[in-house]
Structures are given as structure tokens and as C-alpha cells.
């Protein structure tokens, strides 16, 4: 592990809250999320759709419309708080210190400009002194680095001339043009086939080793997280419900929602004739978050009404170092339960 406990984390998010006002009411999209991330480490954020993963990452990027969004808490990047920064200051950081890769690269690339031109422009925004030739060379190097064959030919092609996997590589090249210290990848492989997904995940891991950047990888796929993340943050209903190293969360999950996620995915191992164990019900609407623990209407262990339906459980440390969980169940009971809950999944212990 390159993890250096002594140095302060490069990214430190504290009690982040993001609210949108809409015609239907206030959306509490992120409700008190805290985590830290060192350079060179990958944090996987998992959760079902609508759990606030993208909103969290967009807040770090400063991409929310300030007129409709209320953001409180702190987002410290290299010690500097991003909450409340002006648009101009944020623009200087974006692309240089923190960059983002989206699920749909087509929507993030301009259809009428060549890929090369977009790469060059991205570079020159942050390197005012760089000549065209330098920027072009950098772009060609990056295209080559992300595994795009014949970069000088591809340089002058338009986004629609690339396949899905190649487009995602272009996005990665673009995000790495300025050597960002933090890279946020929001479902970068969800639209891709497994064989291409595997290539992209390998590429991200290689690049991380080379550039020593911090990566936030957002996904709904626990399998992806288990393969590439160092740490995992499980989100539910806009809150963090479990946080720990990938080994802690995969081998000793302590939150009933994490158990549910693990138990509901079919695996390539284990007995295929055994039924999956779904989580009952549906994810909540973030306009009407259930009282107390947001998961209580779906939780098989909920103690109702007290305390589960009444008090929001805090994300508290469990015995293992750095492992935190937000659940009212007593720790011994959690530990004695999860082995049964996820036994059939067969995670190697």
C-alpha cells in the first residue's frame, strides 16, 4: 500500500450537503457526507441510482448551478476549500487540479470539433505559455498513452468516428492532459461491454500508478469496485452508510444495505439454482427521505419505531481501523449476522 497515514488527505470532504429546490419540493440529494482521499488511492462510491453519487462528484467539480443549488459543508482540495469559490476560480482548478470522466463521452465531447483540437484547447487553457506545437505533442502523447492506435491519424478525427471504448479513452486522455491530482470517473464503464470495461479499468489503474493521482470511481457495480478500488463508500438516500477499505467492506460488510447489495447480485460462483436475495421495495425519493435511517422501510433488521425510524444513525467507527458504518444495530449483532447474509455470494475470506 502506498497509503501514508501521516500525510493529510489530498481531498477532504466534510459534512457535505447539497440541496436543490424544485417545483416538487426540496431535493436533499446529498445529506452530510464526509470522506478523505490520499493521492495514489482509489475511492469507489457505490449505491443504487438516485443515491446521490453523481451529485457528490459534481459538487467537488463545482459544476452545480448556484442559482438552484444550496451547498454547505467543506470540500478541501490540497487544503483549499472549494465551497463558495467563485466560478472563475473554480474554472482555473477544473481540468488542472481535478478532472472528470463521464458515463457518456459523446455528450462530453463537442461533436463539431476534432478530438485533437479539443485536447489542445484543454491543455492551452491551463498552460497559457504553451505553443501550439507543444500542446499538439502533448495531445499525441496522451492519445498514445491511453492506447489509441495511430494517434496522429486519430488526432484529426471527430468524436463520432470513434467506437464507444475508444471515445472513453479519448475522454481519459483529455482528463489527463493537465496532470490532475484528482480524477473523478462517474460510471466510466457502465455503457461499455465487459471486455472493453476490463481494458478501461486496467488503463485507469496503470495511469494512476504513473501519475499518482487520487481517483474517485463512481459505479453501481460492486464487482468493479472490488477489483479496482482501495476504499469504498456506500451511499444510500443521499447519505454515506458505510465506509472502509475494500477488504473491510467486501469481507466484513457491516451495514444491512451493503449486505443487500452483495446478496442481490448474481455471481459466476456459487450455486446458480439458489434464488438471489433481493432488497425488498424501491429506493427512496430524495424529496421524501424516510425518517430516521433512510433504509428502514427496506431493512430486514429495522427496530421500529425506535431507534431506526426516529433517529438518523451516525457514521461511526467500528473496531477495525478506518471502517465506519451508520446503523443502529449493535456491532456484535452486525458481525454475527453478515456472514449468513452474504455466505452464498462466496467472497473469498
Amino acid at each position: 500500500m502506498t497509503h501514508d497515514a501521516a500525510s493529510p488527505p489530498y481531498l477532504q470532504v466534510d459534512d457535505l450537503r447539497v440541496r436543490f429546490s424544485t417545483a416538487d419540493g426540496e431535493v436533499r440529494a446529498v445529506d452530510g457526507v464526509s470522506f478523505g482521499l490520499q493521492r495514489g488511492r482509489t475511492l469507489g462510491i457505490v449505491g443504487e441510482s438516485g443515491s446521490g453519487k453523481s451529485v457528490t462528484s459534481l459538487a467537488v467539480m463545482g459544476l452545480h448551478d448556484p442559482a438552484r443549488t444550496r451547498i454547505t459543508g467543506a470540500i478541501k482540495l490540497g487544503g483549499r476549500d472549494l465551497v463558495g469559490l467563485s466560478d472563475g476560480e473554480m474554472r482555473k482548478l477544473r481540468g488542472r487540479d481535478v478532472a472528470m470522466i463521464f458515463q457518456d463521452p459523446l455528450s462530453a465531447l463537442h461533436p463539431f470539433y476534432t478530438v485533437g483540437r479539443q485536447l489542445v484547447e484543454g491543455y492551452r487553457t491551463h498552460h497559457a505559455g504553451a505553443s501550439k506545437a507543444q500542446a499538439r505533442q502533448r495531445a499525441l502523447d496522451m492519445l498514445d498513452r491511453v492506447g489509441i492506435p495511430q494517434p496522429d491519424r486519430r488526432f484529426s478525427q471527430y468524436p463520432h468516428e470513434f467506437s464507444g471504448g475508444m471515445r472513453q479513452r479519448v475522454m481519459i486522455a483529455m482528463s489527463l492532459m493537465n496532470d490532475p491530482a484528482l480524477l473523478i470517473a462517474d460510471e466510466p464503464t457502465t455503457a461499455l461491454d465487459v471486455t472493453v470495461q476490463a481494458q478501461i479499468l486496467d488503463l485507469l489503474a496503470d495511469l494512476q500508478r504513473e501519475f499518482h493521482s487520487a481517483i474517485i470511481l463512481i459505479t453501481h457495480d460492486l464487482g468493479v469496485v472490488s477489483q479496482v478500488a482501495d476504499e469504498v463508500l456506500v451511499m444510500y438516500g443521499g447519505r454515506a452508510v458505510e465506509h472502509g477499505t475494500v477488504a473491510q467492506v467486501m469481507r466484513g460488510p457491516q451495514h444491512p444495505y451493503t449486505w443487500g447489495l452483495l446478496a442481490s447480485i448474481p455471481s459466476l460462483h456459487g450455486d446458480p439454482e439458489v434464488d438471489l436475495k433481493p432488497i425488498k421495495g424501491n429506493p427512496p425519493s430524495l424529496i421524501n427521505v424516510p425518517s430516521g435511517c433512510a433504509f428502514h422501510p427496506r431493512c430486514a433488521y429495522a427496530m421500529k419505531p425506535e431507534p431506526c425510524a426516529a433517529q438518523v444513525p451516525q457514521l461511526l467507527a467500528v473496531q477495525a481501523d478506518g471502517h465506519r458504518v451508520a446503523c443502529h444495530l449493535p456491532e456484535p449483532q452486525r458481525i454475527s449476522t453478515y456472514t449468513d447474509e452474504i455466505a452464498h455470494v462466496g467472497v473469498a475470506q
Binding site: 425488498k280 421495495g281 424501491n282 425519493s285 424529496i287 421524501n288
Partner: peptide, 8 residues
């Protein structure tokens, strides 16, 4: 379990 459509 029969699940109700979202409220509202």
C-alpha cells in the same frame, strides 16, 4: 410484495 407507486 405488492408495492405502491411512489406517493405524491
Amino acid at each position: 410484495v405488492p408495492v405502491a407507486p411512489q406517493p405524491g
